[in-house]
Simulated assay, not measured.
Amino acid sequence: MNTRNRVLIAVTGVLTLAAAAVIYVGAASARNQGTASAGTSDAVTLDGGRLLFRSTADADRGHVSSVSAADPGGARAVSTVSCSRVYAAGGTGICLRPETGLTTYQLAVLDSRLAVTQEIPLVGLPNRARVSPDGKRLAWTVFVTGDSYNGGRFSTRAGTLDLTTDSVEGTLEDFAVTVAGKPYKAADFNFWGVTFTRKPGRFYATMSTGSHRYLVEGDSTARTVKTLRDNVECPSLSPDETRVAYKAAIDGDPAKGWRVSVLDLASGTVTPLAETRTVDDQPAWLDDRTVAYALPRTQGHSDVWAVSADGSGAPRLLIPEAESPAALP
């Protein structure tokens, strides 16, 4: 069975998801059009020393763009590639986008010059995207509907693609789950926010079941996940692999919003960061000291902010009219 067929995720409610895609669509104002055109070019690559992101200055298109890491507020390069979510590492990019003329979505694998090398169909609304540090593994999360246990509300599906073997996991829900050291089975598993380690086949993610949202450690080779800690959503592993940045539900209740925080994996120490606004995003590490994330400005428009990973200082605006940041070392 080829990659294209194996990754198809059979769910209902596709039309509902297509309607929900309006969150990615908006008409850019004259001010935003000015931001989009200033200092633009088509010379966007995955070369180092840049910050890659999805532009929201053209909210209806979401062009993949980049700025100098040394001057993130300066002139941006804007490509002709459009994505709902984008990320890159190790010379490989992932672009989650609508399929042309259809109400479905696809994952596009990008090379270092943003040329599409592979396309994989996805059924669901794009939500999260990640690439392993070596550029050989990709992960995505989509919203879906139709799960009987969920009463017609949105659920999530997280999948992975290994470019070295061309193997696809369309969902992590088939993995063997261990909770608190004991085998655990449930009908309501949801996975999202995958982040890769440098070790082949190993990753972290969020798994929800019941009222819990666990940080889990996964092994794609063994097809297993085990819980590590509760109330951890959208983890992002630091470059030195000692910490995880994530969004923590305030008082354990997502209805109250989320506080971006950092977990030390060895000690279990949690450090709430200086950003006190609610952050509904998967944080991205710019380096071992700095965490970036997107905050909405108006419908369809966002800005990327940065904050110190040790809890000190104050948030700073990093890239206006942007989301889905990725540092290119």
Rank of each mutant, 00 (worst) to 15 (best):
A129T: 08
S112T: 12
A248C: 04
A57F: 14
R130K: 07
S167I: 10
R316Y: 02
K136E: 06
P283S: 11
V194E: 08
D147G: 04
A139W: 01
A70M: 10
A294G: 13
S167F: 15
S55Q: 03
T145P: 01
V144D: 00
T16R: 09
Y246E: 02
V232M: 08
R289F: 14
R297I: 08
T269P: 11
A139N: 03
D71P: 01
R289M: 06
E169V: 13
V244S: 02
V179L: 15
K199S: 11
S312T: 15
G90S: 03
R50G: 01
S324V: 02
V144T: 12
G34R: 13
A292T: 05
P72E: 13
S82T: 15
L96F: 14
G124A: 07
T104W: 01
S238K: 10
C234P: 00
N150D: 07
F196W: 13
L17Q: 01
T298C: 05
D230Y: 14
R128E: 09
T45N: 10
E323D: 12
E173F: 14
V260P: 00
P98H: 13
D281F: 05
D240S: 10
E119T: 15
V81A: 15
S29R: 04
L163T: 06
E173T: 12
T269V: 15
P325K: 03
H301V: 14
A129K: 02
V232D: 02
G170V: 11
K226I: 06
T195E: 04
I120F: 08
A314L: 05
V232R: 03
R153F: 10
T12P: 00
V25D: 06
V244K: 02
N127P: 10
T100R: 11
T12Q: 08
N32E: 15
A69R: 12
S66H: 12
P133L: 02
S66G: 07
Q118H: 12
S65N: 07
D166N: 15
R229C: 09
T165K: 10
Y105F: 15
F154L: 08
G210T: 10
A70W: 11
K256N: 01
T100K: 14
A180G: 05
A21T: 07
D288S: 10
R97M: 12
R243A: 05
A75F: 15
D288I: 12
T171S: 14
E99D: 12
A77N: 07
D240N: 11
V279Q: 05
D280A: 05
V291R: 01
A57G: 09
A248P: 00
T117D: 03
G90P: 02
Y105I: 08
V270A: 03
T117K: 06
R54Y: 10
T40H: 03
